[in-house]
Every structure is written in C-alpha cells, then in structure tokens.
Design a binder for these strands. Structure first.
Lengths: 142, 142
DNA sequence: CCAATATCAAGAACTATTCTAAATTGGTTT
DNA sequence: AAACCAATTTAGAATAGTTCTTGATATTGG
C-alpha cells in the first residue's frame, strides 16, 4: 500500500542534504517520524513523537522543520477542512480518503492515464498545476 | 455559468423557512448576500456586505447564521488550505478551480455519468459520502 | 398576554500558527 | 584551535480566525 518507490523507508540513512535542504538533526528527526508512521500526523503529533529523540525540541522548531521540508518538496502538507494541517512524506500526486468511522486517512491514487478533463468540466484554458482531492465516507464491511 | 436550477436568484422571495430552518431577518440577509455575488466570500466579507441592510449585525451573528445555513444544507462551506472559510449558495456537487493569478474561484462540475472509481484507485469497500476537490492554476490566455 | 424557547450581540476565550529576538550551532577561515 | 559568520533553534509573545459565554431581545405556542 505504501509507495516505496517515491519515499525512503524509515531505516534508510537520511542523507546530509535533500533537494538542497541541509538536514539538521531536528529536520532529520522530524522527517524520520513522518517516514515511520504514515498516519498523517499534525505538527503537534510530530512534536510529541520527536521528543523521544530530541527532548528539548520546541514546537516552533517542528513547525520550522515541517515548513522547510514542505517548501523543498520533501514532505506534503495536507489540510482537511479547517483542522490542523497534517503532513505526509508521500509527495507523489495523490488524494485522501477520510474514513469517518475510524478517523483513518487512506492515500488514494489516480488510475494511470486518466486526464482531469476526462471527468471534469474545466473552465476554458485552465492550466492546472495543483490538485487537492479529499473524499469522506466509510469503509463498508464487505 | 451559475446554476439557476439548484440556487434561487437574489430577487426571489426568500421564504419564512428553508429546510426546517426558520429564516430570521439576519439569516435572510446573510443568505441574500451569498446569492447576490457568487464570489465565495469569507465570513468577514459577508459581515461587511450585510451591514448595509443590517448596520447593527455582529460578526458573531454572521458566523451563527452561516453555520445554521450550512448545517441545514442551504449553503456550502468551502475551505482552501488554511485560509478563512468561504461560503457559497451552490449546494450541488461541485469542485473549485482557484486561479492563482487573479485569485478568482471558479466552480467546476463533474461530467455527467462519471464515476469516482473510473479514475481513482479507491480502497476496497469505500463508500464515499462527500467529495472535496480543489484545483489550482491559471487561466491560460488562448 | 405570558411563559418557554430560540436567536442575537458583544466581547472574552481558544487554537493553530507565525513572528521576534536572543541563544546556539555548524561550517569556514585563519 | 580560535574567531568568525550565517543558519538554525528556542521560548514566548503575537496574530487571525473562529467559537464560546452571557445577558439581552425577539418569536412562538398556550
């Protein structure tokens, strides 16, 4: 289910630098936490988890690190409604299915070869650079 | 471009009650503002506009009214990233195209007859009750 | 008309996030 | 290794949007 082609595993050595971003101790740990449990944690979730490795890290630093990772395309920031932002290390294009009964968020991918204009009435001349798709519902028990 | 089959026009008399929600003076005016300019205003935008008709209305009341309208399915609340919520009177299923260069938000509809599973790899047994789709980009000048 | 209920208004409170300023760190040059 | 400089981290203050609280006001049903 997890795409190991686009995202390193948590055991992988995280290099000194990724996409031009120097990996400080804090950034490395924040990133490692994201790779570890792919459950779309909030900044505060990350803060709590990263404290094991770096007890003196501050929440502001977690925000800083997440912002740096996002801006360098290493991590994706995901917003559901007006809830706290969530973060995931899967930067491949994908949407989310939010299971209302369990709260679990599943990544969903587009079928290969589909085109936005295949199923959407887009304004004439629209050039789409960014897609945000969230589905909500339940995982029916078949 | 505006769907007059699912949304009343601003000139239409707004009835005493919609979908079980009593239309107070404040709710009526808030709703009228939303019908007037379909530009996805924020709560504060609505507040500023509605003051013409009701100079003593408070921002809290605008929030209350919008919440009541949303909860009764009369109005839709739309969130882009972590910006202020926006509100639109088009409750038919639709997504949004956010033009980055002008800031204008265009409603986009699904082509008739398309199915989510036609273009998405959904988790097995997923029952989708709610779709949120936002595209960002530019309206190329062709 | 009166009581019960719903709604409104004003401002305080709350939450997630960003900002600020000072301290620390890391890498580089001497 | 010491000095230097820029980048980063930290802690707490500030901010923005929204929600909550409380008392006032309006509306409905009896």
């Amino acid at each position: 289910m997890v795409d190991n082609l686009t995202v390193p595993s948590p055991e992988t050595e995280i290099p000194e630098e990724i996409s031009g971003l120097r990996m400080t101790r804090q950034r490395r740990e924040v990133y490692r936490i994201l790779l570890q449990d792919r459950d779309h944690p909030t900044a505060n979730d990350v803060f709590l988890r990263v404290k094991d490795a770096l007890p003196s890290i501050s929440l502001a630093t977690v925000y800083n690190c997440l912002e740096a990772l996002v801006q360098h395309g290493i991590v994706r920031q995901v917003n559901f409604e007006r809830e706290s932002s969530r973060f995931c290390p899967n930067v491949a294009e994908h949407g989310h299915f939010h299971d209302r009964s369990t709260g679990v968020i599943h990544d969903i991918t587009f079928k290969p070869g589909v085109n936005l204009s295949d199923f959407l009435e887009l304004p004439a001349g629209a050039v789409v650079t960014d897609i945000e798709l969230t589905l909500r519902g339940q995982l029916g028990s078949i």
